[in-house]
C-alpha cells in the first residue's frame, strides 16, 4: 500500500507492505542508514528515533503507522553537511563512542532527554541511558558526553 512519511522534515512516498518495520523503511526504502538495527525486539535501542518528538523504537512500529507523524532520525541532527550539533560534538570531544553502532540511537534518546531536562545530573543521565545498550564504552564516556553537552 502507498504510504507517505515525513522524515527530518521531508515527505517520502513509497509503496510498502504493511509488515514493513519503520526501521527498515528508513534504511532500505529511503536510504537513511544512520538508524541502526540491533535486536529487532525493542531491547538494544540502536534503532531509536524521535516520533513526534518522543524517543521510540523504530523496530517496534510498522511504517504504515507513521503516516501523519513527524519522524526524526540521526541524519536530522547535524546543522549542515560536515558539521556536528552540540550533542554530537560533545560525543566526539568526550570519546562517547568507539565502534559507533549504538551511537545514533543514543543521540536520539539524549536529544529528547535534554529537551526535557536541559541541566540533568549524572543519575538522571544514567537513568535516561538505561534503554540503550553499548558494548564498547562501559557507558562512562557517554555519560560524560551528555553532561558536557548540557553544559554547553
Amino acid at each position: 500500500m502507498k504510504v507517505t512519511i515525513r522524515v527530518n522534515g521531508v515527505e517520502h512516498t513509497r509503496e510498502v507492505e504493511p509488515r514493513l518495520l519503520l526501521s527498515d523503511f528508513l534504511r532500505h526504502e529511503i536510504g537513511l542508514t544512520g538508524t541502526h538495527v540491533g535486536c529487532e525486539h525493542g531491547v538494544c535501542g540502536a534503532c531509536t528515533i524521535l516520533w513526534d518528538g518522543a524517543p521510540a523504537r523504530s523496530c517496534l512500529a510498522f511504517a504504515v503507522q507513521a503516516e501523519g507523524h513527524e519522524i526524526r532520525t540521526v541524519e536530522g541532527l547535524a546543522p549542515a553537511p560536515g558539521k556536528l550539533n552540540p550533542l554530537q560534538q560533545a560525543f566526539q570531544d568526550a570519546h562517547g563512542l568507539q565502534c559507533g553502532y549504538c551511537t545514533p540511537g543514543i543521540l536520539m534518546t539524549m536529544t529528547a532527554f535534554l529537551e526535557d531536562n536541559p541541566k540533568p545530573d549524572e543519575a538522571q543521565v544514567r537513568e535516561a541511558l538505561s534503554g540503550n545498550l553499548c558494548r564498547c564504552t562501559g557507558y562512562q564516556h557517554i555519560v560524560d558526553a551528555v553532561l558536557l553537552a548540557s553544559q554547553a
Binding site: G42, G45, T48, W51, A54, P55, A56, R57, L60, A61, T109, F113, A128, S130, G131
Partner: peptide, 9 residues
C-alpha cells in the same frame, strides 16, 4: 516498566 522509549508508545 521497560524504558522511556518503550513507554512512549
Amino acid at each position: 516498566v521497560a524504558h522511556p522509549q518503550i513507554r512512549t508508545r
